[in-house]
């Protein structure tokens, strides 16, 4: 290395270290603290996880899916988190490739479970109801997946089809601004609403 370059290396050590420290404090401490302050002051419900409480007890977050297997509940997207489904401290997906036999087997098992819980249902099984979500924590299903389960839930709870349909509609979101994303039904808030109607 040329001599002038070597001396430049030593001369640059101080500005490199000092600038790194200053910019670290600004971007790594000051910036996140200001955002936290703004969030806790302006948007506390969202900043703390969109939690749902019942009788002063937190029963979930409207953004985080829960595991439902009972016939009286709408079931959500299958979850690939470990060691149990919908583990919100360990988000994960299946990472199964499209041709992996394990994927076909898992889908077949889920289709069979849906059919055995609701033998007379002749609707086609919506793909989102039998494939794992990307996060393992998806709180939502497609309107088709809700419709598929409506009869089973109505029967298990002794509710009329109209009541259940009204609850589905109340927990359905359309595309944002009519354009973005997909229409969807929040399974967590829907099941909470149904629990309020009949335990």
């Amino acid at each position: 290395m040329e001599n002038s370059l070597k001396s430049f290396v030593f001369k640059s050590l101080r500005p490199a270290i000092v600038l790194f420290v200053i910019l670290s404090v600004i971007t790594g401490i000051v910036y996140p603290l200001i955002i936290t302050g703004a969030g806790q002051w302006l948007l506390p419900a969202q900043a703390n996880g969109s939690l749902i409480t019942k009788d002063d007890k937190v029963i979930g977050s409207s953004l985080i899916g829960q595991n439902f297997t009972a016939p009286k509940y709408f079931w959500g997207r299958p979850s690939a988190t470990g060691p149990y489904p919908n583990n919100a401290a360990a988000s994960s997906d299946s990472n199964l490739g499209p041709l992996n036999p394990a994927l076909a087997d898992a889908v077949k098992v889920r289709v069979a479970a849906l059919k055995s819980a609701d033998a007379e249902n002749t609707l086609p099984v919506p793909v989102d109801l039998v494939t794992t979500s990307a996060s393992g924590l998806d709180p939502e299903i497609s309107p088709a997946a809700a419709l598929y389960q409506a009869n089973r839930v109505a029967k298990a709870r002794g509710l009329s089809a109209e009541t259940v349909q009204a609850a589905i509609t109340a927990n359905t979101k359309n595309r944002q601004w009519g354009i973005l994303g997909e229409p969807r039904v929040n399974v967590v808030t829907l099941n909470i609403a149904l629990d309020k109607l009949v335990k």
Binding site: R77, D93, S94, N95, L96, P98, L103, V127, D128, T131, T132, S133, A134, S135, D138, E140, I141, S142, G181, E182, R184
Partner: peptide, 8 residues
């Protein structure tokens, strides 16, 4: 292909 995708 909804495997590994989110509903929204």
């Amino acid at each position: 292909n909804m495997e590994g995708k989110e509903t929204r």
